Amino acid sequence: MWESKESVYKIIKPPVAFKPRTPPPTASEVRDKKIAKITRRLKLMLRQKSAATMGKPGGHYKPCVKNFLKKHSKEPVIVYGQQRCTKHVKRFPDVPKDKPVYGRVKILDFIKMNAEQMIHSKPDRSKIPKKQRRYMFKKSFGKLPAYLTTRMKESADKKKKDSPEEKAKAAAACNHAGTRKLDEKERISMMNALKMKWADTNARYQRLSVALDLDSQKRAKERFEENLTRLEKDVSLLSRKVILVSDSAPSKVQREVTTPKH
């Protein structure tokens, strides 16, 4: 006869069997254990003190006849009649005894179910504000904010200052006392002369030797570098659009001119 190896009991897991646990020790038992431990320690200390100088008495190292491993002494003690920590609960239902009807299918109309659910549902009004804000009744409605007006005014002033007409007016109006505006031809001629001088100084600077062994060569190199930096500053100063020149020479220059050299 043919026997099937499949079984429902292979799918259903058996319930977990809990091992019986020994009850925890009571307060009196814990106290008795502590007292016995302390007394044992005191007896050992007294025995050691008695044999501290002359050694232990004879026959002390002999093993005790009563202390031997007894049968089933290391096995756990099972207490019968004790209530377990967890009760046995039936986790799975029993296997149905009636045979299922072949071909029975439960037909569900999900569209109709969803429609009925949406019809009977209510909207979530928890996030809707209770009172609507009306911004058109504000005083600042339809007006530009203050920060935008200030920025627009600043940009307009900047454009006005950067215009060529304003620059020409500012250049014409910069008449300080005791100064005059440098002529364009004079400025260009002075700049060309400075550039020629810079080219001549740079050519002599390039002709210096690479290895500077002597102190005089080092001093000459430093002198050339100072002259070149000074000439570059003068050229950048003369490249401005408006240059004011003092009518009278500075006091330092007048002193050098007036004082005779001995």
Results as ranks from 00 to 15, higher is better:
Val95Trp: 12
Pro96Phe: 08
Pro96Leu: 07
Lys97Tyr: 08
Lys97Thr: 03
Lys97Val: 02
Asp98Leu: 03
Lys99Asp: 07
Tyr102Cys: 04
Gly103Glu: 01
Arg104Gln: 12
Arg104Asp: 07
Val105Asn: 11
Asp109Ser: 14
Phe110Glu: 03
Lys112Met: 08
Asn114Asp: 14
Ala115Glu: 13
Glu116Gln: 04
Glu116Val: 03
Met118Pro: 01
Ile119Asp: 09
Ile119Arg: 15
Ser121Ile: 04
Ser121Val: 06
Lys122Phe: 02
Lys122Asn: 13
Asp124Pro: 02
Arg125Asn: 03
Arg125Leu: 15
Arg125Asp: 01
Lys127Asp: 02
Lys127Leu: 00
Lys127His: 06
Ile128Phe: 01
Ile128Ser: 01
Pro129Phe: 02
Pro129Ser: 13
Pro129Cys: 07
Lys130Arg: 03
Gln132Phe: 04
Arg133Cys: 12
Arg133Leu: 03
Arg134Val: 00
Met136Tyr: 14
Met136Ala: 15
Met136His: 06
Phe137Ala: 10
Phe137Pro: 01
Phe137Arg: 12
Lys139Ala: 01
Lys139Cys: 00
Ser140Met: 04
Ser140Tyr: 09
Phe141Glu: 00
Gly142Asn: 03
Lys143Ser: 08
Lys143Val: 11
Pro145Asn: 10
Pro145Arg: 11
Tyr147Lys: 12
Leu148Asp: 07
Leu148Lys: 10
Arg151Ser: 11
Ala156Ile: 02
Asp157Trp: 07
